[in-house]
């Protein structure tokens, strides 16, 4: 009797173990599948930048040699980088990109922080409409309005002038940055401004000493967004800048390194890689803010 019950007990127990084991095995299978999928996509996603690096390390002769495996560098050289940095306008373009981006980021942040503070906290007639308008403006793509802007820029005599970029890039950065700053400012509890008001702060002190420090992560995210957009902008410089010394990186690489049908691929790839470096570095060090900045449009109300 007791033997039988013991046997039953043992059977149940082992059945249970089996069950647990199968769940675990299934989970492992899922995980393996996940890693395979990830690996495939990582290869697909990293292929172009890796190939950029490979090509940039080759000499022109090696690139032109069709007999070898293009995915392998046989005699790596920094020649391409060296030439870019010492001859031609690459450094100038880099400098121009930095100037434009720095100015645009500064202008954008000043405009959007002031506006967001005003729209989220102080309110005035029509401020609700403006907040919605800001969001809609953000959805206006640059290809919609570049032709009238081309005429306007020409009309004020800023055609082929780097500073025109500083003037018009804010259309692309300000609405979105304002929008996410409104989100961040609105999440600051109202009692905090009331406490500051009672403590004796005026509106500028409130903004400077309370709002900006408290919303610093948001400001960082918005700054990164403005930086990314300015750095990557291609259409405006393409349309409004023609001479090489006015150009920024995105257009400069193409216009300077492609002369007719001669493509200096090694240098193009080296130049492209270095142009991608600043956003990549920012991304590497500030990944969370970077993601917050670029996704906030839909995740922040």
């Amino acid at each position: 009797m007791s033997g039988a019950s013991f046997a039953t007990g043992g059977a149940t127990a082992s059945a249970t173990y089996q069950k647990v084991g199968s769940i675990r095995a299934e989970r492992r299978r899922v995980l393996i599948g996940a890693y395979i999928a990830l690996a495939v996509f990582v290869v697909f996603f990293l292929l172009p930048p890796v190939y950029m690096l490979i090509t940039s390390l080759k000499s022109s002769a090696e690139i032109a040699d069709l007999s070898g495996n293009p995915w392998i560098v046989t005699r790596p050289t920094l020649q391409n980088y060296w030439e870019l940095l010492t001859e031609g306008n690459y450094l100038l373009h880099f400098r121009n990109s930095i100037i434009v981006t720095a100015c645009v980021v500064a202008i954008t942040m000043v405009i959007s922080i002031l506006a967001a503070f005003s729209l989220s906290r102080m309110r005035f007639w029509g401020s609700g409409v403006l907040a919605t308008g800001v969001f809609l403006t953000y959805l206006v793509p640059e290809t919609l309005l570049f032709i009238p802007l081309f005429q306007i820029i020409g009309g004020i005599g800023m055609y082929n002038n780097l500073w025109a970029m500083v003037l018009i890039y804010p259309t692309l950065t300000v609405p979105f940055c304002t929008w996410i700053m409104i989100g961040y400012f609105s999440s600051i509890p109202k009692e905090l401004d009331e406490a500051a008001l009672i403590d004796g702060a005026n509106h500028f002190q409130m903004l400077w000493k309370i709002f900006i420090p408290v919303a610093l992560p948001g400001i960082l995210a918005a700054t990164i967004f403005a930086f990314t957009v300015s750095w990557a902008q291609f259409l405006y410089p393409m349309a409004f800048l023609v001479s090489s010394e006015q150009m920024v990186l995105t257009t400069g690489i193409v216009s300077d390194l492609i002369r007719g049908d001669t493509f200096v691929w090694g240098k193009i790839m080296a130049g492209a890689l270095m142009a991608a470096l600043p956003p990549l570095l920012v991304y590497a060090f500030l990944m969370d803010y970077y993601i917050a900045g670029l996704t906030a449009g839909a995740t922040k109300g």
Binding site: V42, F45, M52, A232, F234, L249, I253, M269, A272, A276
Partner: peptide
């Protein structure tokens, strides 16, 4: 790693 394509300016990565 998976976010890298989105970080490189498209005008630059398209060159590759």
């Amino acid at each position: 790693m998976l976010l890298v394509p989105w970080v490189i300016p498209p005008a630059v990565s398209t060159l590759a």
